[in-house]
Amino acid sequence: MAKIAVANLKAGMKLLKPVVNESGMVMLGEGTVLTEQMIAKISSMNINAVFVEGKEQRTKTKQEALAELEQRFSRSGENEQMKLLKKVMLEHIEEIYK
């Protein structure tokens, strides 16, 4: 799943979540393959980003993500729950950057 700014949408992308208008009405359903007309319609709505199929654009490298994680856990010491959380977070990062 990728969240994409409306300005970067291209025809052929497939919606993973419905696009709803301000009063919550579904304008384009899940699974819709976008056309140029639909993109123009979405652009005219008050929406910043939509969810489409594909890989998320990463803002950091795996190394950066790991370094930040180390810093966040730098005061965790021998706390058992923190060790478990760190382990789960490490696995999670491995999973995301696979």
Binding site: Q71, R72, R75, S76, N79, L85, V88, M89
Partner: peptide, 30 residues
């Protein structure tokens, strides 16, 4: 832990063991 938002510091407070038991999450739940 996910680094979402900013709460005023860059180090995570410790999980309180009593609270952890109260909720009763397993490693898989987590």
């Amino acid at each position: 832990a996910k680094g979402f938002g900013f709460a005023g510091d860059h180090v995570i407070p410790l999980i309180n063991p009593t609270a952890w038991q109260t909720i009763g999450l397993t490693a898989q739940d987590l």
